[in-house]
Protein backbone atom coordinates (compact mmCIF):
# COMPACT_ATOMS: atom_id res chain seq x y z
CA UNK A 1 0.00 0.00 0.00
CA UNK A 2 1.27 3.45 -0.82
CA UNK A 3 2.18 6.03 1.76
CA UNK A 4 -0.18 8.49 0.09
CA UNK A 5 -3.15 6.47 1.21
CA UNK A 6 -1.78 4.92 4.39
CA UNK A 7 -0.48 8.03 6.14
CA UNK A 8 -3.63 10.18 6.05
CA UNK A 9 -6.17 7.41 6.53
CA UNK A 10 -4.59 4.70 8.64
CA UNK A 11 -1.45 5.88 10.38
CA UNK A 12 -3.14 8.11 12.94
CA UNK A 13 -5.89 5.64 13.89
CA UNK A 14 -3.31 2.87 14.27
CA UNK A 15 -1.17 5.07 16.50
CA UNK A 16 -4.16 6.21 18.56
CA UNK A 17 -5.35 2.63 18.91
CA UNK A 18 -1.92 1.47 20.01
CA UNK A 19 -1.36 4.28 22.50
CA UNK A 20 -4.87 3.74 23.89
CA UNK A 21 -4.30 0.04 24.30
CA UNK A 22 -0.97 0.60 26.07
CA UNK A 23 -2.28 3.41 28.29
CA UNK A 24 -5.08 1.12 29.47
CA UNK A 25 -3.04 -2.07 29.70
CA UNK A 26 -0.43 -0.52 32.04
CA UNK A 27 -2.77 0.24 34.98
CA UNK A 28 -4.83 -2.80 33.94
CA UNK A 29 -1.99 -5.06 35.09
CA UNK A 30 -2.42 -3.83 38.64
CA UNK A 31 -6.21 -3.88 38.49
CA UNK A 32 -6.13 -7.53 37.40
CA UNK A 33 -3.62 -8.52 40.08
CA UNK A 34 -5.57 -6.69 42.78
CA UNK A 35 -8.78 -8.41 41.68
CA UNK A 36 -10.20 -5.00 40.87
CA UNK A 37 -10.67 -5.66 37.18
CA UNK A 38 -14.29 -4.61 37.42
CA UNK A 39 -13.23 -1.16 38.64
CA UNK A 40 -12.20 -0.72 35.01
CA UNK A 41 -15.72 -1.78 34.05
CA UNK A 42 -17.28 0.69 36.47
CA UNK A 43 -14.98 3.56 35.48
CA UNK A 44 -15.59 3.16 31.80
CA UNK A 45 -19.34 3.32 32.39
CA UNK A 46 -19.26 6.41 34.62
CA UNK A 47 -16.98 8.30 32.24
CA UNK A 48 -20.06 8.94 30.09
CA UNK A 49 -22.08 11.00 32.61
CA UNK A 50 -18.87 12.85 33.55
CA UNK A 51 -18.23 13.89 29.98
CA UNK A 52 -21.86 14.80 29.33
CA UNK A 53 -22.04 16.96 32.46
CA UNK A 54 -18.72 18.60 31.56
CA UNK A 55 -20.13 19.34 28.13
CA UNK A 56 -23.36 20.77 29.54
CA UNK A 57 -21.41 23.02 31.93
CA UNK A 58 -18.76 24.30 29.52
CA UNK A 59 -20.45 23.83 26.16
CA UNK A 60 -17.30 22.38 24.59
CA UNK A 61 -15.63 19.03 24.27
CA UNK A 62 -12.17 20.34 25.12
CA UNK A 63 -9.58 18.08 26.68
CA UNK A 64 -9.59 19.61 30.13
CA UNK A 65 -13.34 19.85 30.76
CA UNK A 66 -13.69 16.26 29.63
CA UNK A 67 -10.81 15.02 31.76
CA UNK A 68 -12.01 16.90 34.83
CA UNK A 69 -15.63 15.87 34.34
CA UNK A 70 -14.77 12.23 33.88
CA UNK A 71 -12.25 12.28 36.71
CA UNK A 72 -14.82 13.79 39.06
CA UNK A 73 -17.38 11.22 37.92
CA UNK A 74 -14.91 8.43 38.67
CA UNK A 75 -14.27 9.84 42.14
CA UNK A 76 -18.01 10.28 42.79
CA UNK A 77 -18.54 6.69 41.69
CA UNK A 78 -15.81 5.33 43.97
CA UNK A 79 -17.16 7.31 46.93
CA UNK A 80 -20.72 6.18 46.21
CA UNK A 81 -19.64 2.55 45.94
CA UNK A 82 -17.78 2.78 49.26
CA UNK A 83 -20.68 4.60 50.91
CA UNK A 84 -23.26 2.08 49.73
CA UNK A 85 -21.00 -0.79 50.68
CA UNK A 86 -20.54 0.51 54.22
CA UNK A 87 -23.90 2.15 54.92
CA UNK A 88 -25.91 -0.71 53.49
CA UNK A 89 -23.47 -3.50 54.38
CA UNK A 90 -23.65 -4.73 50.78
CA UNK A 91 -20.94 -6.70 48.97
CA UNK A 92 -18.70 -4.70 46.63
CA UNK A 93 -19.85 -6.31 43.39
CA UNK A 94 -23.49 -5.49 43.98
CA UNK A 95 -22.68 -1.97 45.21
CA UNK A 96 -20.68 -1.40 42.03
CA UNK A 97 -23.51 -2.77 39.93
CA UNK A 98 -25.94 -0.34 41.53
CA UNK A 99 -23.70 2.69 41.07
CA UNK A 100 -22.30 2.29 37.60
CA UNK A 101 -25.50 1.20 35.91
CA UNK A 102 -27.40 4.09 37.46
CA UNK A 103 -24.74 6.64 36.57
CA UNK A 104 -24.55 5.28 33.05
CA UNK A 105 -28.33 5.48 32.73
CA UNK A 106 -28.18 9.08 33.95
CA UNK A 107 -25.50 9.83 31.36
CA UNK A 108 -27.56 8.35 28.54
CA UNK A 109 -30.63 10.26 29.68
CA UNK A 110 -28.74 13.58 29.89
CA UNK A 111 -27.27 12.94 26.47
CA UNK A 112 -30.66 12.22 24.95
CA UNK A 113 -32.22 15.26 26.58
CA UNK A 114 -29.56 17.81 25.65
CA UNK A 115 -28.68 19.27 22.32
CA UNK A 116 -25.36 17.82 21.31
CA UNK A 117 -25.85 18.21 17.58
CA UNK A 118 -23.02 20.74 17.38
CA UNK A 119 -20.40 18.33 18.71
CA UNK A 120 -19.45 14.77 18.06
CA UNK A 121 -21.14 13.20 21.05
CA UNK A 122 -23.92 10.67 20.79
CA UNK A 123 -24.86 7.46 22.51
CA UNK A 124 -23.69 5.16 19.77
CA UNK A 125 -20.32 6.89 19.58
CA UNK A 126 -20.02 6.71 23.35
CA UNK A 127 -20.64 2.98 23.37
CA UNK A 128 -18.73 1.87 20.32
CA UNK A 129 -16.13 4.53 19.66
CA UNK A 130 -15.14 5.84 16.30
CA UNK A 131 -11.49 5.17 15.62
CA UNK A 132 -11.89 5.39 11.85
CA UNK A 133 -13.01 9.02 11.92
CA UNK A 134 -9.71 10.21 13.42
CA UNK A 135 -8.02 10.77 10.07
CA UNK A 136 -5.22 13.17 9.16
CA UNK A 137 -6.54 15.06 6.18
CA UNK A 138 -3.52 17.33 5.77
CA UNK A 139 -1.14 14.50 5.06
CA UNK A 140 -0.30 13.32 1.58
CA UNK A 141 2.47 10.82 2.19
CA UNK A 142 5.29 9.84 4.54
CA UNK A 143 6.93 13.22 3.85
CA UNK A 144 4.13 14.93 5.76
CA UNK A 145 5.59 13.57 8.99
CA UNK A 146 8.34 16.17 8.60
CA UNK A 147 6.09 18.92 7.32
CA UNK A 148 5.18 21.36 10.11
CA UNK A 149 2.13 22.68 8.27
CA UNK A 150 0.69 19.22 7.82
CA UNK A 151 1.59 18.27 11.40
CA UNK A 152 -0.55 21.19 12.59
CA UNK A 153 -3.55 19.35 11.20
CA UNK A 154 -3.02 16.17 13.24
CA UNK A 155 -6.16 15.23 15.17
CA UNK A 156 -5.86 16.56 18.76
CA UNK A 157 -6.80 13.12 20.06
CA UNK A 158 -3.39 11.80 19.02
CA UNK A 159 -1.36 14.11 21.22
CA UNK A 160 -3.92 13.72 24.01
CA UNK A 161 -3.67 9.96 24.13
CA UNK A 162 0.10 10.05 23.66
CA UNK A 163 0.52 12.37 26.65
CA UNK A 164 -1.89 10.24 28.64
CA UNK A 165 0.16 7.15 27.88
CA UNK A 166 3.34 8.90 28.97
CA UNK A 167 1.60 10.14 32.12
CA UNK A 168 0.36 6.67 33.02
CA UNK A 169 3.81 5.21 32.42
CA UNK A 170 5.36 7.94 34.57
CA UNK A 171 2.94 7.19 37.39
CA UNK A 172 3.85 3.51 37.33
CA UNK A 173 7.56 4.32 37.17
CA UNK A 174 7.41 6.79 40.06
CA UNK A 175 5.31 4.59 42.33
CA UNK A 176 6.68 1.26 41.12
CA UNK A 177 7.92 -0.09 44.44
CA UNK A 178 4.96 0.93 46.62
CA UNK A 179 2.52 -0.21 43.93
CA UNK A 180 4.20 -3.57 43.58
CA UNK A 181 4.46 -4.17 47.31
CA UNK A 182 0.93 -3.07 48.11
CA UNK A 183 -0.46 -5.15 45.25
CA UNK A 184 1.08 -8.37 46.48
CA UNK A 185 1.04 -7.83 50.24
CA UNK A 186 -1.11 -5.01 51.47
CA UNK A 187 -0.45 -5.46 55.18
CA UNK A 188 3.30 -5.61 54.63
CA UNK A 189 3.03 -2.40 52.60
CA UNK A 190 1.17 -0.76 55.46
CA UNK A 191 3.86 -1.97 57.81
CA UNK A 192 6.41 -0.18 55.66
CA UNK A 193 4.40 3.02 56.02
CA UNK A 194 2.96 3.04 52.49
CA UNK A 195 -0.42 4.73 52.40
CA UNK A 196 -2.20 1.92 50.58
CA UNK A 197 -5.62 3.59 50.60
CA UNK A 198 -4.32 6.73 48.89
CA UNK A 199 -2.28 4.64 46.47
CA UNK A 200 -5.31 2.54 45.54
CA UNK A 201 -7.32 5.71 44.95
CA UNK A 202 -4.48 7.12 42.82
CA UNK A 203 -4.50 3.96 40.72
CA UNK A 204 -8.24 4.33 40.19
CA UNK A 205 -7.81 7.97 39.15
CA UNK A 206 -4.98 7.14 36.74
CA UNK A 207 -7.17 4.42 35.25
CA UNK A 208 -9.98 6.93 34.94
CA UNK A 209 -7.71 9.33 33.07
CA UNK A 210 -6.68 6.56 30.70
CA UNK A 211 -10.33 5.61 30.26
CA UNK A 212 -11.34 9.17 29.35
CA UNK A 213 -8.59 9.55 26.81
CA UNK A 214 -9.45 6.14 25.38
CA UNK A 215 -13.18 6.81 25.43
CA UNK A 216 -12.90 9.09 22.40
CA UNK A 217 -11.31 6.50 20.25
CA UNK A 218 -12.81 3.20 21.25
CA UNK A 219 -15.96 3.88 23.24
CA UNK A 220 -16.74 3.05 26.82
CA UNK A 221 -17.32 -0.69 26.68
CA UNK A 222 -14.39 -1.68 24.52
CA UNK A 223 -12.12 0.24 26.91
CA UNK A 224 -12.81 -2.56 29.36
CA UNK A 225 -11.26 -5.05 26.93
CA UNK A 226 -8.15 -2.89 26.78
CA UNK A 227 -7.92 -2.73 30.57
CA UNK A 228 -8.37 -6.41 31.16
CA UNK A 229 -7.52 -8.62 28.19
CA UNK A 230 -3.82 -7.86 27.56
CA UNK A 231 -2.87 -7.96 31.28
CA UNK A 232 -4.97 -11.09 31.85
CA UNK A 233 -3.29 -12.82 28.91
CA UNK A 234 0.11 -11.61 30.13
CA UNK A 235 -0.66 -12.99 33.59
CA UNK A 236 -0.88 -16.45 32.04
CA UNK A 237 2.54 -16.09 30.39
CA UNK A 238 4.83 -15.31 33.31
CA UNK A 239 5.20 -15.15 37.08
CA UNK A 240 7.21 -11.93 37.16
CA UNK A 241 5.49 -8.57 37.28
CA UNK A 242 8.06 -6.84 35.07
CA UNK A 243 7.72 -9.52 32.41
CA UNK A 244 3.95 -9.46 32.74
CA UNK A 245 3.87 -5.74 32.00
CA UNK A 246 6.13 -6.22 28.99
CA UNK A 247 3.90 -9.03 27.67
CA UNK A 248 0.79 -6.93 28.22
CA UNK A 249 2.24 -3.99 26.29
CA UNK A 250 3.17 -6.39 23.50
CA UNK A 251 -0.30 -7.92 23.43
CA UNK A 252 -1.93 -4.50 23.52
CA UNK A 253 0.14 -3.27 20.58
CA UNK A 254 -0.45 -6.46 18.63
CA UNK A 255 -4.20 -6.39 19.09
CA UNK A 256 -4.40 -2.68 18.25
CA UNK A 257 -2.35 -2.83 15.06
CA UNK A 258 -3.65 -6.16 13.81
CA UNK A 259 -7.21 -5.27 14.84
CA UNK A 260 -7.15 -2.03 12.91
CA UNK A 261 -5.64 -3.66 9.84
CA UNK A 262 -8.14 -6.56 9.91
CA UNK A 263 -11.07 -4.19 10.36
CA UNK A 264 -9.94 -1.85 7.62
CA UNK A 265 -8.67 -4.29 5.04
CA UNK A 266 -9.98 -7.71 6.10
CA UNK A 267 -13.42 -7.24 4.52
CA UNK A 268 -11.74 -6.15 1.28
CA UNK A 269 -9.70 -9.34 1.20
CA UNK A 270 -12.90 -11.31 1.76
CA UNK A 271 -14.58 -9.59 -1.13
CA UNK A 272 -16.63 -7.05 0.84
CA UNK A 273 -16.31 -3.38 0.12
CA UNK A 274 -16.75 -1.70 3.49
CA UNK A 275 -14.63 -1.69 6.60
CA UNK A 276 -16.01 -2.95 9.91
CA UNK A 277 -15.66 -1.32 13.34
CA UNK A 278 -11.98 -1.05 14.21
CA UNK A 279 -12.56 -0.64 17.94
CA UNK A 280 -14.74 -3.73 17.96
CA UNK A 281 -12.14 -5.66 16.02
CA UNK A 282 -9.37 -4.62 18.41
CA UNK A 283 -11.45 -5.86 21.34
CA UNK A 284 -12.19 -9.10 19.50
CA UNK A 285 -8.51 -9.66 18.77
CA UNK A 286 -7.47 -8.96 22.34
CA UNK A 287 -10.07 -11.56 23.31
CA UNK A 288 -8.58 -14.04 20.83
CA UNK A 289 -5.14 -13.47 22.34
CA UNK A 290 -6.58 -14.06 25.80
CA UNK A 291 -8.31 -17.23 24.57
CA UNK A 292 -4.99 -18.53 23.18
CA UNK A 293 -3.29 -17.70 26.47
CA UNK A 294 -6.04 -19.50 28.39
CA UNK A 295 -5.54 -22.58 26.21
CA UNK A 296 -1.76 -22.59 25.84
CA UNK A 297 -0.19 -20.02 28.20
CA UNK A 298 2.76 -21.55 30.06
CA UNK A 299 1.64 -20.24 33.47
CA UNK A 300 -2.09 -20.63 32.98
CA UNK A 301 -2.71 -23.14 35.72
CA UNK A 302 -3.66 -22.26 39.25
CA UNK A 303 -2.18 -25.52 40.51
CA UNK A 304 1.52 -25.51 41.28
CA UNK A 305 1.84 -21.80 40.70
CA UNK A 306 4.58 -20.46 42.94
CA UNK A 307 3.53 -17.85 45.43
CA UNK A 308 4.20 -14.40 44.08
CA UNK A 309 6.42 -12.04 45.95
Amino acid sequence: MSGEEFVPLSLVPILIGTFTAIACALPGNFLVLRKQALIGDAISHVVLPGIVVAFLVTGTLGTWPMMIGAGLAAIVAVILIEAIRRLGRIETGAAMGVVFTSMFAAGVLLLERSDTSTVHLDVEHALMGNLESLIWLDADGWASLLDPVALEGLPPELSRIFLTMLGVAAFLWLFWRPLKISTFDESFAEGLGIRTGALGMALVIVSAIAAVAAFDAVGSIIVIAMFICPPAAARLMTDRLEAQIAWSVGFATLSAVLGYVLAGYGPLWLGGDNAVSAAGMIATLSGCILALAVLFGPKRSRIGAPTEG
Binding site: A225, I228, R235, R300
Partner: peptide, 23 residues
Amino acid sequence: RTRLAEDAAIGAVLSVFFGAGVV
Protein backbone atom coordinates in the same frame (compact mmCIF):
# COMPACT_ATOMS: atom_id res chain seq x y z
CA ARG B 1 -9.00 -23.60 34.10
CA THR B 2 -6.70 -20.69 34.80
CA ARG B 3 -5.50 -18.69 37.75
CA LEU B 4 -7.37 -15.60 36.63
CA ALA B 5 -10.02 -14.46 39.10
CA GLU B 6 -13.69 -14.25 38.26
CA ASP B 7 -13.67 -10.45 37.99
CA ALA B 8 -11.07 -10.53 35.21
CA ALA B 9 -13.03 -13.25 33.43
CA ILE B 10 -16.26 -11.23 33.66
CA GLY B 11 -14.63 -8.05 32.38
CA ALA B 12 -12.83 -9.82 29.54
CA VAL B 13 -15.92 -11.70 28.38
CA LEU B 14 -18.29 -8.75 28.50
CA SER B 15 -16.01 -6.40 26.60
CA VAL B 16 -14.74 -8.88 24.03
CA PHE B 17 -18.20 -10.21 23.22
CA PHE B 18 -19.48 -6.66 23.01
CA GLY B 19 -16.61 -5.76 20.69
CA ALA B 20 -17.37 -8.72 18.45
CA GLY B 21 -21.01 -7.65 18.46
CA VAL B 22 -20.04 -4.13 17.39
CA VAL B 23 -18.06 -5.62 14.50
